[in-house]
Every structure is written in structure tokens, then in C-alpha cells.
Amino acid sequence: MKTEDFNFYLPEKLIAQHPLEDRKLSRLMILDKETGKIEHKIFKDIIEYLNPGDCLVLNDTKVIPARLFGERKNTGGKVEFLLLKRVKGDQWETLVKPGKKARIGDNIVFGEGLLEATVLDIREGGTRLIEFKYNGIFNEILDKLGEMPLPPYITEKLGDKDRYQTVYSKNEGSAAAPTAGLHFTKELLDDIKNKGVNIAFITLHVGLGTFRPVKVDDVENHDMHSEFFDVSKEAADKINNAKKNGGSIISVGTTSTRTLETVTDDNGVVKSKSGWTDIFIYPGYKFKIVDKLITNFHLPESTLIMLVSTLSTRENVLNAYKCAVDEKYRFFSFGDAMFIK
């Protein structure tokens, strides 16, 4: 299977640069995964497609303000950090620009000394292992000094950083938002719950590997990034009970999907566990637990469009994407949504 098989034409003007004022008023494409039939709705209409006894699974990770701007302690040279993931304690794997200004042993200061970092190691791929030193509470300092790590295709500055968080975000640790969930409001979630739909929260801390392009010709040769997940017993029980009683499991986003498929055994039972996953879902994969998917519109030739194609077919999904372009849907993180049923 070739990476180019997942390419499509996308005009740059369709890349959404800012979120809509009202989250639930994004457009919603409905795709029948079997027939390929397409309907056009508004996101708030999603409730019409959810039935009592179904289980809606949401990723409650919270994006940290992971972009930091500092300078080398000795020379004053400007340095930009992007925190990818906490390794342990105050040690983080980090992207650094320019990389040549972050050699092993170098010290970088942020916020006139509120935060200081030492480069411990240079890792494969050029990322740095760094250790922070500070007085006080790290998250409070990060909130004061850091900026939201918006994807590279968003070039406009975000006025309200809470718009790059879901309304149910809780567990801090992501370098990017689980964007399919950005369309939900608290009121819409209440209405869904009142309809008799179960809601389960799981966690996967999204890394920037999500945006890493597939650079190999053959899909099977792609090296998938690893991300931390946590699924509680309460969430596992809700999902398993819904499935047992004939309800559909509706995953919100590719991050929830990858987590669910990681923790589900070959008998279709979700296990409560935490750890790291590098699962790569592309056509040929057989889903163990996920029945339906709410997702945004993704980059050409990305692992995300490959996952989406797996739940339906590549032909159905690429046809839906062509339709989305023709109908001028908004793409990517702040864009519109698709429901694959």
C-alpha cells in the first residue's frame, strides 16, 4: 500500500485559521461507512445519530502551553523550545530551534530566570532531553511563560487559548489538542447524556508526531510515534457494558480510537490500563471495539486519513474528502467535522 494512495487536492484557503465563535455550529458531514452515502448537517445535529445505550468515548487530555522562548545563559542567543513529552520528573523530550544552539550541557533561561533548562542528551531525530530547574509549581510557571503549540499550518495567532482546549479537558500533558472534541459544548454533552447515551472519558496525551508527515513510499514502513494513555476501570466498564448490551461505541477522534484499540483484547473486551502506544491503524486492520467515529478532516497522506479510511474504505473516504473540498468545508484543527456511521 502506497502513501500516495491517500493523497488528495486541498486548496490552502480551506485550512481553517481560527475556530468558529460557537463550537457546535461547525459543519458536519455524515458518511455511511458501508454505502459511502453522504449527508450534510451542522455539528449540533450529531445527537440525532446517537442512540440510548450507545457509548460516546472522549479524550480528556489537556494541552499544556508547550512553546517556550528563551535564551542561552552564556551568549544570549535566542532559543525556542517545544515540549513533546515528560520523560520523568522535570525531564522532558523537547524540540529545539535552532538545534545547534542546544548542545549537551548548555543552559537556557526563560522569563528572566523564572525557568532554567539544561540539555542532557541529543536523541534520535534531533530532539533534546532537557531538565528544568525552577522555584515554585512547574505548571503555574509554564502557564505564565508558555504559548499554545498550534500546528504549523495555523499561521494566525489565537486570541483565546481556551479555544484550543475541549470543554471537558482535564488531564494535562498534550502538545496538541484532540481536535474532534473541540466541537462539543457542555450543553450539547448534557443533551446527549439526557438522551440516554453513556459518556466515557479516557486519556491520550497527543504528541506532535500526530503532524509528522509519512516520509516513506510504503505505508507499512512508517515508524509510528509513541504516546501515553490511561484508561480507568470506570471507563472500561462503561464501554464494555454498552457493547454487551448492543450499543455502538462511538469514538471521538483518532486519539480516542488509537487508545481504545490498544486496550481492547482479541475478544473485544476493553481493559483498564495505562502505558505507551504506537499502534498504527491503516487499511487491512480489523477494529476490535470502535463502531463509529467523529473526526475532523485531515492532512493528505497522513496517518490520520489512513486510520479514517480503515473504518470505511479508502475510496469512500477520498470521495468524501473530494466532496468536502467541493462544498468548501473547513479543514484541520479548527475545521469542520465528519461522522462515520
Rank of each mutant, 00 (worst) to 15 (best):
D5P: 05
F6A: 05
F8T: 05
L10W: 06
E12T: 13
L14H: 04
I15V: 15
H18R: 14
L20W: 01
R23E: 00
L28V: 04
D32W: 13
K33Q: 10
T35E: 11
G36I: 01
K37F: 05
D45Q: 08
D45S: 08
I46A: 10
E48S: 15
N59P: 03
K62R: 05
K62W: 02
I64L: 01
P65L: 03
R67C: 02
E71W: 09
K73D: 13
K73Y: 12
E80V: 00
E80F: 04
F81I: 03
F81G: 02
L83P: 00
K85Q: 15
K88V: 07
Q91R: 14
Q91W: 01
W92E: 01
W92Y: 14
T94E: 12
V96F: 03
P98V: 12
P98W: 09
G99V: 15
K101Y: 15
A102W: 01
A102T: 04
V109D: 11
L114N: 11
A117P: 01
I122S: 13
I122W: 00
G125D: 13
G126C: 08
T127N: 12
T127W: 00
R128S: 08
R128V: 06
F132C: 03
K133A: 11
Y134A: 07
L142E: 04
P152Y: 04
P152F: 07
P152A: 03
G159E: 15
Q165T: 05
T166Q: 02
S169N: 07
S169Y: 05
A175D: 08
T179W: 07
F184Y: 07
T185S: 14
K186P: 01
L188V: 07
L188K: 07
L189S: 11
K193D: 14
N198S: 11
V206A: 10
V206P: 00
L208V: 06
G209Y: 10
K215Y: 11
D217L: 08
D218N: 14
N221R: 08
D223P: 01
D223L: 09
M224Q: 05
M224L: 08
F228G: 00
V231N: 06
S232W: 11
K233G: 01
N241E: 15
A242E: 06
K243G: 07
N245C: 04
G246L: 05
V252D: 01
G253Y: 04
E261R: 05
V263K: 08
T264A: 13
N267G: 14
N267T: 08
G268F: 11
V270I: 13
S272C: 07
G275V: 10
G275E: 07
G275R: 02
T277F: 11
D278E: 09
Y282M: 05
P283D: 09
K288R: 15
I289D: 03
K292L: 07
H298D: 03
P300F: 00
I305G: 03
R314D: 00
E315W: 09
E315N: 08
N316Y: 00
V317W: 03
V317Q: 02
N319W: 03
A324V: 00
V325D: 02
V325G: 06
K328A: 14
K328V: 11
D336Y: 10
D336G: 12
K341Q: 12
